[in-house]
Amino acid sequence: MNNQVKRRKTKAVNVGKVQVGGGAPVAVQSMTCTDTRNVRETIEQIEALEKAGCEIVRVAVPDAEAASVLGKIKKSISIPLIADIHFNHHYALMAIEQDVDGIRINPGNVGKKNIAEIVRAAKDHNTVIRIGVNAGSLEKELQEKHGGPTAHALTESALNNLAFVEDMGFDRIKLSLKSSHVPTMIDAYRLVADKTDYPLHLGVTEAGTLVTSAVKSSIGMGLLLHEGIGDTIRVSVTGSPVLEIGIAYDILRALDIRRVGPDIISCPTCGRCEIDLFGLVEQVEHSLSGMKDYMKIALMGCVVNGPGEAAEADVGIAGGRGMGLLFKKGQVIRKIREEEFVKALLQEIQEMTGE
């Protein structure tokens, strides 16, 4: 970890086998987009998420049928399972009875009386509760008081509900204050981080398609993480949730907060590029999907910066005119033909990591 990033000190909670807060590594979370009632498809997607590096997964619970199958899903997966609850608190109680690792409740659409019942059940089962405040479903009185879902309104909602839960003697809590408006999201997390030491789950909600989500998430979560704020993160993408995981780890690697998986450095290409760099990067990324060991890999397309960048990486290729130099730890290993690039590179990586 980069010593310049001083993590905010928080309480620790255990979400299943994953510690969140208390100095633990920032955990990467996602959410399935399957119909939870379809147990087979949901389990398959969770397995794909885990293979990509997801460490905590959340599923939607829109009705009693979805709530009733959570136990089956939990028994079939190996990462912690979170039930996402809106409106009907009975689904939360059903989820807790089936020993899910955590539940996410939205105070804006559950209600204080029902939250109290959820907390009592969670105490009996040692279930973690995420109080998830969302700009799109904020309590009406707070919207009127603050003139909309502002950062101060989100913070007041989070702190009010936190105090209510704490008064019941419950502290297995995470907080999130999400908005699709990046400046609001940043300000809200900064405000609440100054007022409580509970772990914070970061996210820009409804962030959009892949590129838009990557930009919004990198700016919103990246700024906060660089300030030491954030204990779990989720990149929200319209599309396959598996796409979220790579972006999340890219953010953490870029800030030198977590070194997990392949850090692929490749040039943007220009008129000097004399190899199929696009194809090379695509093949290597696909082949290394799900790799856990950190490794800096340089894939360079010309002789200007290529050799220097490749030599700085753990392993890399600097190519030109259908040929390339294979580097390992700063040393040239051998000269190879372009059609051998992928095979030779993957062979070196396998020897270095065992993966």
Rank of each mutant, 00 (worst) to 15 (best):
I129S: 06
V119W: 13
G147R: 05
S76L: 02
D84G: 13
T127A: 02
I118R: 13
V100Q: 00
H146N: 08
I115F: 11
I77W: 05
H89S: 15
G147A: 07
H146V: 05
L142W: 12
K145N: 01
K74G: 03
D84R: 08
H152Q: 09
G111L: 10
N88H: 09
M94D: 04
P107Q: 03
N134D: 12
D124C: 08
V100D: 01
R104A: 13
V69E: 04
G108N: 12
E144Y: 06
K75H: 11
A121P: 07
I79M: 10
G111S: 12
L142T: 06
H86Q: 13
I77K: 10
L93C: 05
A95H: 01
S68K: 11
T127C: 14
A67F: 00
L93M: 14
A135Q: 11
G108P: 14
I131K: 09
P149A: 12
P149Q: 01
I82N: 10
G136T: 04
H146S: 01
P80V: 03
I96Y: 04
I115G: 12
S78I: 04
E141R: 11
I82M: 14
G108E: 15
P80N: 05
G102C: 14
I115C: 04
E97N: 09
H90K: 15
A92P: 12
G71E: 08
P107M: 02
A116S: 14
H146C: 05
R104D: 13
S78Y: 07
A116N: 13
V110F: 10
G111V: 11
H125M: 09
R104E: 15
F87L: 12
D99L: 06
T150G: 05
S76Y: 00
V133D: 08
V119I: 15
V69S: 02
A83Q: 05
K113Q: 15
D101G: 06
A151M: 05
H89A: 14
P80F: 07
D99W: 03
I118H: 15
V119R: 06
N88A: 01
V128F: 12
D101H: 12
H89I: 01
L93Y: 02
K113I: 15
K75R: 15
A67L: 00
Q98K: 02
S68C: 02
K145F: 07
H90T: 12
F87N: 14
V100R: 00
V119F: 09
G147K: 03
E139H: 07
S78T: 10
Q98R: 01
L93S: 05
L138S: 07
N126L: 09
M94I: 00
D99Y: 10
V69F: 04
G108R: 08
H90E: 15
D124P: 00
L93R: 12
G136S: 07
A92I: 03
G111I: 10
I79W: 03
K123N: 04
D99S: 08
Q143G: 11
K145M: 10
A151N: 03
K140F: 02
V119Q: 07
K74C: 01
K145T: 05
A92Y: 02
A92V: 04
S137P: 06
G111T: 11
T127R: 03
H86F: 13
D124S: 11
V133L: 04
D84E: 14
G148I: 09
K140E: 09
P149Y: 01
H90F: 08
D124V: 09
F87C: 14
A122P: 14
